[in-house]
Nucleic acid binder design. Structure first.
Length: 605
DNA sequence: ATAGGGTTAG
């Protein structure tokens, strides 16, 4: 590129530079790629693109605009990058979810003889969190300890945060580190409280809340969230009233808590009362109604949000589709999908995944496949979602075809993929194929067998009538069988009338879930079938002593934006006489055309 | 450091 001459007089030059600095700082505040590109051209014109002030800022700017190619280009033009520039590139990679690239840059900088500073470590720790790798965090912890970087409080604070994101062993490490910290600021306390809340250690979190010298609004919001997540809404409300000031997050946290508790009345009262709402608040209340199956309210709220001019973001869209998938609100899902298409919203991969999942879970597999096939960039989750969806609705063959296609396209299947694959085999009755996949998942694909996979296999063998093999597999499992394993085994025994085996399995279930009346009622019907009336009365006695009654499983159907739920022998619907008339007619018709219902079902019902 | 967020056996 032709170099443009630099203004001659120093004062002008200085003011031009000042102006550019100001403009660049401004454009970093509001992320606008067009503006940034124009500015980049001007900076280039003045040959400032390798300047120690401008280069790191450009890297950050491009990274904020998700333009990593441009960011790396800026970096590569600098002959001798300094630490500032390295740090900005590391941060750029972390921000754009490329943690391994971040570590490569980190190694490269050490290779060049540059020593990382606290900022570098803080940013790298963020990359570790994305990976949830305890080992990486520990590596950095020892590194930092040796270099004496503890003096900067940002470092131990980020370490605590990262430890919490690494599972149970991380929680202990975080506690230990917090205990030995000589100096703590409000962020250290808040990070600790937040981590404990996420680890379901609410009492300990509250103890720290009481102990700490001063609290800010973040502290209050965090503890509020802890109580609302634990379902303790009275305690949360008390804190909400007591706190010195409230912001959108405080109100939204409370609304979310009431939604999760199913108290839409309180949620709506707070929603109406709060001073300013943002997209997150709207998402929470819409999902609250959607998860309760109240599609009409959810849709009208969605329309109200659109009317206020608030733009739904990825988070809104993914959440609402998720809620639709959960409660089978195809109507709301379609409405949201149409609205997205109308506005020309550019769907990211996660958004497309949510749409595929929604259509699949609602049973509209053709639409799910259309969206899936139309995706520009599919990731592992996309494949898992479509395979799972097809498997769930009995299209096992199609699911397995897609599995082969995903392997052909070079995707490495993970634990979730194999749950879908095994589930597909079960629903299509491919018992031997299932056994094959169960074997090769470890040997060929290096995916460890977990309890979920054993669960699928026991279901597969059990439904296929191979009870002996199912029992053998339970015995050979390297982990303790859980409720789900015993549950599917008892289901298989029921299906194939193996009463003695069912009794044995039920005793295991009762040991694990002594409060569940369902197990005793099943046990009593088994005794009844065998004519053992002593057994029946003892099972009945035990059932009474449990007290708690589990809600029975319900089916649902969506009619005119309203989800109707019904259970076995349900008579609650106002038109239930008419409904049963139709059902009786249908079963009469089925019998006439030669359908014989399974006799075994009678023994247990 | 705080509110909503994609795939997970019966």
């Amino acid at each position: 590129m032709q170099q443009i001459s630099i203004p001659i007089r120093a004062p002008t030059w200085v003011s031009t530079r000042r102006l550019l600095e100001q403009k660049l700082a401004d454009s970093l505040k509001c992320i606008d790629l067009k503006q940034l590109k124009q500015l980049h051209a001007v900076i280039y014109k003045y040959n400032l693109q390798t300047d120690p002030y401008f280069a790191p800022k450009l890297v950050s700017g491009f990274s904020l605009c998700r333009q990593m190619v441009l960011a790396v280009n800026v970096f590569n033009q600098v002959q001798e990058p300094n630490m500032h520039l390295y740090n900005s590139l590391i941060r750029a990679h972390v921000y754009n979810s490329q943690p391994s690239q971040a570590f490569w840059v980190f190694f490269d900088m050490q290779h060049r003889g540059l020593w990382p500073d606290t900022f570098t470590y803080a940013v790298l720790l963020k990359a570790c969190c994305g990976n949830y790798s305890l080992k990486l965090v520990q590596m950095i912890h020892t590194h930092v300890e040796k270099l004496g970087f503890y003096s900067d409080i940002v470092v131990p604070n980020s370490l605590i945060d990262c430890y919490f994101k690494c599972g149970l062993s991380g929680v202990c490490a975080a506690r230990k580190l917090f205990a030995v910290m000589g100096e703590r600021d409000i962020v250290s306390w808040n990070t600790m409280i937040c981590g404990l809340v996420k680890a379901n250690e609410l009492r300990e979190a509250h103890r720290l809340f009481d102990e700490m010298p001063e609290r800010d609004i973040v502290t209050w919001n965090t503890i509020l969230d802890g109580y609302s997540k634990a379902g303790e809404m009275e305690a949360a409300f008390e804190l909400f009233q007591k706190m010195p000031e409230r912001n959108v997050v405080s109100w939204s946290t409370m609304i979310c808590g009431y939604c999760k508790a199913g108290d839409m009345e309180m949620a709506m009262i707070l929603f109406d009362k709060m001073p300013a709402k943002n997209v997150v608040t709207w998402t929470i209340i819409i999902c609250g109604y959607a998860e309760k199956g109240l599609a009409k309210d959810a849709i009208s709220l969605f329309e109200k949000m659109e009317a206020t001019g608030l733009e739904p973001d990825d988070g809104t869209i993914i959440s609402i589709f998720g809620a639709c998938a959960e409660s089978g609100l195809l109507g709301l899902g379609k409405r949201l999908h149409a609205s997205i298409q109308r506005t020309g919203y550019k769907c990211s991969t996660p958004v497309c995944n949510a749409i595929v999942d929604m259509y699949a879970k609602c049973g509209n597999l053709n639409r799910a496949l259309t969206v899936f096939n139309g995706m520009a960039n599919r990731d592992l989750v996309s494949w898992n979602a479509i395979i799972q969806g097809l498997a769930m609705h009995g299209r096992g063959e199609k699911a397995l075809n897609l599995f082969s296609r995903m392997i052909q396209e070079g995707f490495a299947p993970d634990r979730v993929t194999f749950i879908g694959v095994l589930c597909a085999c079960t629903h299509a009755g491919f018992v031997d194929k299932g056994i094959h996949y169960f074997h090769v998942m470890e040997t060929e694909y290096g995916v460890l067998k977990e309890i979920e996979h054993y669960g699928c296999m026991i279901d597969l063998l059990g439904r296929g009538g191979r009870l002996t093999e199912a029992f053998k597999l339970v015995q050979s499992m390297p982990m303790e069988p859980n409720v789900i394993i015993w549950g599917s085994l008892v289901g298989a025994c029921r299906m194939h009338n193996a009463l003695e085996d069912a009794k044995e399995v039920l005793h295991h279930l009762i040991k694990l879930e002594p409060a569940d009346a369902g197990h005793f009622s099943m046990l009593s019907s088994i005794y009844a079938a065998a004519g053992d009336w002593n057994g029946v009365s003892s099972a009945r006695m035990q059932m009474k002593s449990t007290g708690t009654q589990k809600p029975s499983g319900a089916s649902s159907i969506e009619l005119e934006d309203q989800v109707h739920e019904f259970t076995v022998l349900d008579k609650s619907h106002p038109n239930s006489d008419r409904i049963y008339e139709v059902i009786d007619g249908l079963s009469l018709h089925l019998k006439r055309v030669g359908y014989v219902p399974k006799e075994t079902a009678k023994v247990f019902s």
